[in-house]
Design a protein around this nucleic acid. Structure first.
Lengths: 106, 106
DNA sequence: ACAATCCTTGGCTATTTGGCAAAATAGAAA
DNA sequence: TTTCTATTTTGCCAAATAGCCAAGGATTGT
């Protein structure tokens, strides 16, 4: 694989990697409905705020979310709605896997 | 986040995580055109065969690819074509990021 | 100025990951 | 059987990741 091809796959992988954590997936799911401040997300996730903040910076760094400061709070929102398509595909993979599991038992 | 919700997000994240490595993305891309044996993929990727084999087992474990032994070779193929949709979205994220970069320079 | 609130950053530890090389396995062919 | 050949597994090490806590901005309100 030549260097140029490689770095293109690296750039793509970075974006997918940003989505590859349960908490970040949860956050993206929430943001798909409406923007949220860090404190609200922290509340929903249940981890330390610093942990949530780090997850958000990963998503922001990948270009998946954007942030806006309003007063003392920072609101995050989904910048590229197409990532929501991941969910339906992932669910169909899970379904396919479950079917296969079932057929093995039979 | 309750335990059940959490484990659902974990299952989804696992699938996305399997796609979150440049080499594995490359492999999925190749398999989208036609099935390939490990030796062919190893040749294209340029890493050690044991490394490629490990990547393939990650993809297989996630349910993204399936394998079939024929003679001495093992052919891998894409089990869930919907993962290809990831590519177009990821590309649009890259494009959006590039645009933003450009506007900052201006 | 001071305190309170919201958020991010740095430091630490534990865990996971990715890579190669060597050893083990499975099947084909001789 | 023995010997290839294709692939996987194991062992090891370096690097990356996730989590918490404590410390450090920034902004609002007193």
């Amino acid at each position: 694989m030549d260097t140029k091809t490689k770095s293109r796959y690296e750039a793509k992988a970075k974006i997918i990697k940003a989505m590859s954590h349960p908490t970040r997936l949860f956050i993206v799911d929430k943001l798909s409905r409406s923007e949220q401040c860090v404190c609200e997300l922290t509340e929903m996730v249940g981890d330390d705020m610093s942990t949530v903040s780090k997850h958000l910076s990963v998503l922001k760094n990948a270009g998946i979310v954007s942030d806006e400061k309003r007063g003392t709070q920072i609101f995050y929102s989904l910048r590229v709605p197409c990532v929501l398509k991941f969910f339906s595909c992932v669910e169909s993979v899970l379904k396919t896997n479950a079917k296969e599991q079932a057929s093995l038992v039979r």
